[in-house]
Structure formats: C-alpha cells, structure tokens
Design a protein around this nucleic acid. Structure first.
Lengths: 235, 235
DNA sequence: ATTTCAAAATTGGTAAGACCAGTTGGTGAA
DNA sequence: TTCACCAACTGGTCTTACCAATTTTGAAAT
C-alpha cells in the first residue's frame, strides 16, 4: 500500500534551495547571504519560513548568524561529525566502561603514533606545557588534574593534524571523566605511575618514535582501564 | 580584548533543552513529543521559537514531524550523516577524505584484531555469509556490492562484541560510501585485489590470528584509501 | 448494541504585522 | 579633524489569525 508522497513543507523546500545555492557557488563560503527581508520577497514566502530554513542551516553548522550583521556561509568541515557523535552515542544504549576504554585504546594508540610522526614544534610546546601543569596539579588539585589529563591526551590527538581525532576523543572521554575522579583519589602510588607513563609518551613523541609512542600509550590506557574496571566502578 | 559572550538566542536554548530531554530519556525514542502549543506554555515562549528549535532537530534527523499528528523522536540513523557529505567538499574535500580514512584505519585495525580473539561461531557464520554474497555481487551489481562491503566490515566490528565499534564504523563509513560507488566502477583489477584482502582478513579471524587480522586489514584499507585519494575523486 | 460516517477538536503549516535589540555608517556639533 | 549621536540597516521575538491534515468524537443508521 503505497502511501502518498509526504507533503514537503515550505521551510524544507527553502532549505534545499539554499543548500543548492551554496553548493552551486551562488552563495560563496565566507560571504554574507541576503537579509531575511530580502530573501522573503525573493522566495515569495513569509519571514517565518525563511527563518526556519535558516535555523536548519544553522543546526548543521553551515550558517553563522549575528544579530545586526547578517548571516554568513561557513565552511562545513568535519566539525559536523563531532556535533553528531554525542547524539549517536547517547541514543544508543549499552556503554560499559570497558567498551569505552577499548575504543579509547583503538583511537589513542593511533593518535600517539601519528602524533610522533606529524607533530611540529608548536604541538610539542603545547603538550609539554600541559604536562608540566599536570605535574604540579597532581599533587594539589585532583579534580583539576583530571581535566588536565584529558587535555594532555587531546593535545596529542591534535598533533595528528586530523581534526577528527580530538573530536572523537572528547566525545568518548566525556563518558569517563566522572569515574576518574572517584578512582584517582587518595592513591599516590597510582598517580605516580600514571605520571611516568605520561612522561614516556611525551618523550616518544618528541623523539618521533612512533612505535614507542603507540606502545607506551597502550600500556598507559590498559593500566588505568584495569584499575578502574577492577574497582568495579561503573558509570 | 575579550569579546562579550555572544547572546544565545531563544531557539538555540530550546534546542539544547530539547536535546537534553532526548538524551536524558525524558523524551523517548519512537514516542511523540508534546504538541507545539503545549511546549509553548511549558517553555514559556512563543510558538515561533518552538518551531525554530524543532526545525533544528529535524535538520539533524532526530525529529520527524507530520501534520495533524505531531512529532516523534527518531533514532538518529547513521545514514543521515552520509547525506551531509556532499556539503563538506569545498576546499578540503580530499583532505577530509583522508582524515576519515585515518580514523577508519585506527578503528578497523583494532576491530579486526579484536574480532579474531573474540569471535564466536555465530559471528563467523555471519561474516562468511556476507563474504560469499560479496563474491557474487562484485561481478554483477556494483552498487549493491558497496553496501555489502560495508556490511562485511561491520560484521567484523560486531564480532568484537563491543557495540560502540559497529556504531562508530557506520558513522564513519557513511561518509565514504558515496565516493566508493563512483570509484569502484569498471575497475575489475582493483575489485579482484579487494576481494583477496577480504578473504585474507576472514581467514585470519577464523584462525584467531589477531596480528595477521590487524595487518591484513591495515593493508586493505591503505590500498583502497590510496586508490581513492589518488584518483582525486571529489564528489 | 454495533457500525458508520460526518462534524468537531487537535495537530502542524503559513502568513502578516509589530516591536525589540544589536551594528553600522553617516551627519552634525565641538 | 574628531567625536558623539542618531537614523537605517541587520536579526530576534511575540501576537494573532487562519489554513490543512489527522484523529477523535458522537450521533445517526443499522
């Protein structure tokens, strides 16, 4: 029983038309698009429909709007993927701590290795700075050090010069940070151990030793994963 | 000179709030959300703002709306993400492609290895069936074989028994399926080569040889990534 | 009592008009 | 010339009204 074609609403049509204009180059990236009032007469529709279509473009990250100025077309990079990842992950059930760590292991053993090959001096400087911050925080402010720890890993991901890796990592990590806080407290021995790993990873990346970077990262993650899973803390 | 915080518009806020409701499970997938009139009083805002927020959700594919019925929360299928791909072509089309392949490599070299260790007989049966289907399709129906190819990779990801891997892979892969269709046409030699890799990967998983599974998968992906990037196919 | 079917109520879709809130640029005063 | 202020843009929001599709209701016919 073939249902009728679903009526396509006006904003939907406008959305498609605008998308076409962008793809065809009629609306160039970086340039401003006509004002809502103008679009209104141009498309022969109400402002409401225009605004809803623009909202859709905004939701996708193709459009950036500022009051008083207008809207400009943005270059839609891989950021959109990052925007959708959290949604995908939260809607799908069944995340155990172990699952998350397996993914993290897959991602980070690669980022460590790639970072060792692709890092430039600036990357190195950033990672080093974060590492130093971590070194002091780990003795004083546990909660802050968790954040810095994540930042350290993200810095490494950035050094791959593939924007997807930091995005992915942030998404994944948002699921575990809570646990880390509970786990790391009052465990000076473990803290020290983690710090040693961090230093080793940094060294390997500095020396562009991709294999060692990968294996140190693996050991680091495995050890912290084990610790947490053993303590039985589930998110 | 720190710019003021950009004013966040009402629809934007509503969008976030609604997203939270979805993620928190207050609005369940498959269920209808309250009508626009009700949301209007609930959030204490005008219907316009509500509608713009709903438009954003629609644009992301999390909401499906039908006149006279209302709106229901959709499970965000990874397919919709693939639809966005044509948007991220502009300047960095090939670079984006490369980035995606790097992530795929990170994920799949791990899934192959893990699958070799964790697969059970049922997994094996599924993979084998898909592989056989692929063998026949690759001679006859290219388009279908692209889908089956992806299915093969996802089967492997499933065999890790970590649900995050297939999810991740689907997301990533949905971006490239477009390209593959264009790329694989009329290239019997490459098709054969890909098939050989597939067989090898399967063998390794069957024999629970995790190291070989990893390396075969790596070679496979590298070779197909190279092919596509070299041919310079941009959508 | 059950079935049927048309009217009513409910849902989203669209329009028009008014006004608020930032930004820009021009114009007049210092 | 320089500075301050005031239009005239821009998007942001609300109200009201009405259209269109669907579902629900309830009364009439069986």
């Amino acid at each position: 029983m073939n249902k009728e074609q679903k009526r396509i609403s006006t904003p939907e049509i406008l959305f498609q038309k605008m998308l076409n204009r962008i793809q065809s180059g009629e609306w160039k990236i970086g340039n401003a698009i006509p004002s809502e009032r103008i679009l209104m007469v141009e498309f022969g529709t109400s402002r409401l429909a225009i605004r809803e279509a623009l909202s859709m473009l905004r939701a996708l990250g193709v459009l950036e709007t500022n009051q008083g100025q207008g809207s400009i077309i943005r270059n839609l990079d891989t950021e959109i993927i990052g925007r959708l990842f959290p949604l995908l992950f939260s809607l799908e059930g069944d995340k155990t701590l172990e699952h998350i760590y397996q993914v993290r292991l897959a991602i980070e053993s690669t980022t460590a290795s790639m970072a060792a090959l692709n890092r430039n001096e600036n990357d190195l400087k950033n990672i080093k700075k974060t590492l130093q911050l971590l070194r002091t925080q780990i003795e004083t402010d546990i909660e802050a050090s968790i954040k810095t720890d994540l930042e350290f890993h993200i810095q490494i991901a950035r050094a791959t010069h593939n924007p997807l890796f930091p995005l992915l990592l942030e998404t994944i990590a948002s699921f575990v940070s809570y646990v880390q806080i509970l786990s790391c407290k009052d465990n000076p021995q473990k803290k020290h151990k983690a710090m040693v790993y961090h230093e080793s990873i940094f060294e390997a990346i500095q020396n562009q030793d991709s294999e060692r970077a990968r294996s140190e990262m693996e050991s680091h993650l495995r050890s912290s994963a084990n610790r947490m899973i053993k303590t039985g803390i589930i998110i």
